[in-house]
Computed example of a mutant assay.
Amino acid sequence: MIRARSRRQPPATSKPTTSKPTTSKPTTSTRSAAASTIVFVGPSLPGAEVSRLLPGAIVAPPVAFGDVLAIALATKRARPRITRIAIIDGYFERMAAVWHKEITFALERGIEVWGAASMGALRAAELASCGMVGVGEIYRAFAKGELIADDEVAVAHLPGDRGYRAVSDALVSLRDGIARAPMLTGRSRRALVELARARFYRERTWATLYADARAAGVPAKQLTRLAAWPKP
């Protein structure tokens, strides 16, 4: 069972920011599929939004080691019978991450496993050849080898009773903002990405990045405009 952590030591998960969920109205077929679907989600997307998009789906905390295995083992006797697992967020570091073999075991038992945005995108890229289905920009970046490190999607966040609110920014989110910012030169972009990468994932925030960039000599005018620019 995943337990809530204190604010002083927020748990670690992976988190997306560049992939947006669809906002189309659920259809009858969507509702039927949702009834047999479990979605593991945390800081990336509010559980209420999952319920709105997939009425009837089971909304679960970020996935951890053993969660997918438990579903696969209980599938025959569980009601409702889970036929689809969607992984968005997942724990790691202080809690063991979902294991590759439990995902492949679920696939072998005929359960669809989908991944997007965060831990789900990472595992989907690693297990695409085994049948796990990946969705979204972050998944595609991992699948193409444009993103490699696990900590690209890592964030610290508050416990479930605080809505899993993120207290750090994922490196992939910082990269996206830096790449889109029109006021930055190529040299400044490269410097900012390296500064963000150098920080431990729990310390990665836009505020920390601005401070590091000022100390590193990134032009102040560009940083001032970046700070005022609405982030994607």
Rank of each mutant, 00 (worst) to 15 (best):
L226W: 11
A117I: 07
T22V: 07
A191M: 10
K221G: 01
G56I: 02
L209V: 01
R109C: 03
R7C: 10
L69S: 11
R94N: 15
S188P: 01
R165E: 13
A74Y: 03
A97P: 07
D169K: 12
S118H: 09
L195D: 00
V167F: 05
A149E: 15
A198C: 10
Y201H: 13
A97F: 09
P230D: 04
K15C: 15
A121I: 06
G47I: 09
P21F: 10
D151N: 12
A12P: 03
I88T: 08
L54V: 02
A33N: 09
F105R: 01
F65M: 10
S24Q: 13
G56S: 00
G217P: 02
E194W: 02
L107G: 07
R189Y: 05
A72R: 02
D150F: 15
I111W: 05
A124I: 07
K101D: 14
V135Y: 11
D161N: 13
A57R: 03
P230W: 02
F40L: 00
D89H: 08
S19P: 01
A207R: 11
D176Y: 14
S6M: 11
L158F: 05
V172F: 09
C130N: 07
L171K: 05
T104M: 00
V133D: 00
F200R: 13
L107F: 08
R204T: 04
R214L: 09
R79C: 09
I58T: 14
L54E: 00
L107E: 04
G110S: 00
L122M: 12
E126H: 10
S6T: 14
E194N: 12
D176V: 02
K76W: 04
A74C: 02
I82K: 01
V133S: 04
T205G: 06
V167N: 04
T28L: 12
T23G: 14
A97Y: 08
D161Y: 12
R180C: 08
L147M: 10
A78L: 15
Y91L: 14
V41Y: 05
Q9V: 13
R225K: 14
V59E: 06
R202V: 13
A227V: 06
L73K: 10
V41S: 03
R109Y: 07
A64Y: 08
W99D: 15
P11F: 12
A227L: 06
A57F: 04
A207T: 13
T18I: 15
E194R: 14
L158D: 09
T104E: 01
K15M: 15
Y201F: 15
R202C: 08
A227W: 08
A179S: 13
G177L: 01
F105M: 06
A220V: 11
L209N: 03
T22C: 10
A196G: 06
T23F: 12
W114L: 12
T104S: 08
A227P: 00
P62R: 03
R214C: 03
P232D: 00
I138G: 00
A4D: 15
A181L: 07
D169E: 15
G145R: 07
E108G: 15
P55T: 02
G90P: 09
A213G: 00
V68W: 05
R225S: 10
A128Q: 13
Y91N: 12
G160D: 02
A220E: 15
Y139K: 01
